[in-house]
Design a binder for these strands. Structure first.
Lengths: 145, 145
DNA sequence: ATACCACCTAAACCTGACTTCAGGTCAAGT
DNA sequence: ACTTGACCTGAAGTCAGGTTTAGGTGGTAT
């Protein structure tokens, strides 16, 4: 059993954030000691680990809350929890795809300014993509579609 | 030359957002017609394309503004613009890495709930990772570190 | 001439995810 | 007795990135 201050240090989260998560219903199993003090057990810590992961994946607080509620409802909600993770898997995959495309555009811009610095101007940009090095062409094409 | 309404349709951005970008200094070259009406030329449209990309990469409005200002300052700022894109390239790469890790965790959870549905309970989770299928073990290990 | 449409501004409002504030409880140390 | 430190609460504040509102201008169609 851990106090809020200890958990704050363990997870590198401000105490205010832990209280906020509790208030928002992200820690449904959280226990209060006599005189109202929060006590985090192993299950609460596991909840925090899951919250950390779901937040990194871009999930919103209210959806994380729904998941935590399902967890506290037992085996009847396995299917819903699975569907939630399957949807989140797709969300993450499409985010990665989007970032890959953005990365190509940014790599193109790196090439572009490297060349502009060499030349001292951007005149080369006037007759693109014909004048492009072959390894840049596919970047250029995809960056502008 | 396009009106704000036309540009709004072309970029699928609300008019209010275009005005907001202008107010925040993201469109330094924007021209006003007699009687104060915004007119978007090819350069403004190219700015909007760049803004779209930089936003997708997760850059903040104030940093995009800085970039746009550098663009309007000519060849003296090529180096700064290059450095900005190089930094942004790294940001995107580490975001992708982070999402890959999160994806592994989410894939593990998909497997976990698929199994829980099969079994009707989560008892199998008690003696993990020993009881894990070999193809899940590496996921499990990485998901919890 | 009046109705309508697309445009304009400043300022207030909104959402999500926190953070800060003002004031209160309680156990332990001096 | 009193101060200190760790905890508690509800309410207000913050920040980014817009959106909405209220009121106003100017050109064209009936």
């Amino acid at each position: 059993m851990y106090s809020i201050g200890e958990v704050s240090k363990m997870f590198h989260l401000p105490i205010s954030t832990l209280r906020y998560y509790d208030k928002e219903g992200l820690l449904p199993g959280l226990i209060r000691e006599k005189s109202n003090i929060r006590k985090f057990d192993e299950r609460s810590l596991e909840s925090l680990r899951v919250i950390e992961c779901l937040k990194k994946s871009g999930m919103e607080i209210k959806d994380i809350k729904q998941f935590m509620i399902w967890c506290s409802e037992g085996s009847a909600t396995y299917q819903k929890r699975l569907e939630m993770f399957q949807k989140q898997k797709q969300n993450i995959e499409s985010k990665i795809d989007q970032l890959q495309k953005t990365l190509e555009m940014v790599e193109f811009k790196c090439w572009y300014y490297t060349r502009a610095i060499e030349d001292g101007n951007e005149a080369f940009a006037e007759n693109m993509p014909d004048s492009l090095p072959d390894e840049i062409k596919p970047l250029y094409i995809r960056s502008h579609t």
